[in-house]
Simulated scan of single mutants.
Amino acid sequence: MTESGRKLILSYYVSIDGKSVGPTNGMRGVMESIDDEAQEDEYVRQLWEAGAFLMGRASYDAMKGFWPVAEHPSAAPMNAIPKVVFSRTLDSVEEWGASSIASGDLAEEIARLKAEPGKDLFAIAGDSFQRALIAAGVVDEYRLWVLPAAAGTGTALFPEQDGPLRLR
């Protein structure tokens, strides 16, 4: 935990060359083809550790119709755990379980959520949202899931990293 209470964990799939996973760079097929039950079990176990999933509007829009009807092992925690959608344009997020909107300053909203009691917060989707979290300096821990393929194209999670990250 951080001094302010809960910590913010950024959980992110990347290719071995550090690019984001998405439908436009061919990595979606690689991600879906992983047949490592132990890795999948670990990912689902970690999802259950979350007190809330944080995401931007675009990710919420993409996932709200998928997870409620999905039969994937990740569906249970994705549907059961509250979601906080960061958006200045949405009026409601009623379509997907216990979801709420955070529309204020990103760093202030994250500080407020960290100060609340409960399990840690997981940022789970969206290149621009996750890069905004990194730029704001609010990420306490990175959990990178490295896929066994080079994307070649895609968004780098740390495009302007000027120093080493501390590994644990």
Rank of each mutant, 00 (worst) to 15 (best):
A132N: 10
Q39Y: 02
V84I: 15
G97P: 12
D120S: 10
G26R: 08
E94Y: 00
P159F: 05
K19T: 09
L121R: 12
E109Y: 03
R88S: 14
G104Y: 04
T24C: 00
F86Q: 08
R112P: 00
E141P: 03
K83G: 07
D120P: 12
R168I: 12
P159K: 09
M63K: 00
K19F: 05
I124N: 07
I134F: 03
P164S: 14
E32K: 06
D36R: 09
H72T: 04
R131P: 04
A123D: 02
A135M: 03
V84C: 05
T89F: 03
N79L: 04
L147W: 04
I134Y: 01
E3P: 13
R88Y: 01
R112W: 04
D41S: 13
R88F: 03
G26A: 02
G65R: 01
A123I: 07
A111R: 15
H72P: 02
S20M: 13
W67T: 05
P117H: 04
E37G: 11
R28N: 09
Y60I: 02
A58M: 06
G56L: 03
E37Y: 00
K64A: 08
D140H: 11
L90K: 12
F66Q: 02
L133V: 12
L8D: 10
A98M: 08
G29M: 02
I81A: 07
Y43Q: 06
Y43C: 05
L54N: 05
V30F: 04
E141V: 13
K7A: 06
E32D: 14
E71K: 14
V84Q: 08
P82A: 02
M78W: 00
T24L: 03
P73M: 03
E49I: 00
D17S: 11
Y13T: 07
K19N: 10
P82V: 01
D140M: 09
A156T: 14
I134E: 07
Q130A: 11
Q161G: 09
K114L: 03
E94F: 00
W48E: 13
V30T: 15
L165H: 03
V21S: 09
E3V: 12
W145R: 15
V139I: 14
S99T: 14
E108S: 13
D17V: 11
S92W: 00
E37H: 04
R45M: 07
K119Q: 14
M78C: 12
R45P: 04
L54A: 05
V21G: 08
S100E: 13
A151R: 10
A75S: 15
S15M: 06
S15E: 11
Y60D: 01
W145Q: 13
K83L: 01
L144P: 06
L133M: 11
V30E: 11
P82S: 04
A62V: 02
G56P: 03
A156K: 15
M31W: 02
S103Q: 08
I34E: 11
S59W: 00
P23T: 08
E94S: 14
I124C: 10
G29Y: 00
D127V: 15
W67N: 08
R112Y: 04
R112H: 10
G118T: 07
L47S: 07
G154Q: 05
S20L: 09
R131T: 05
P164Y: 12
R143A: 08
G152A: 08
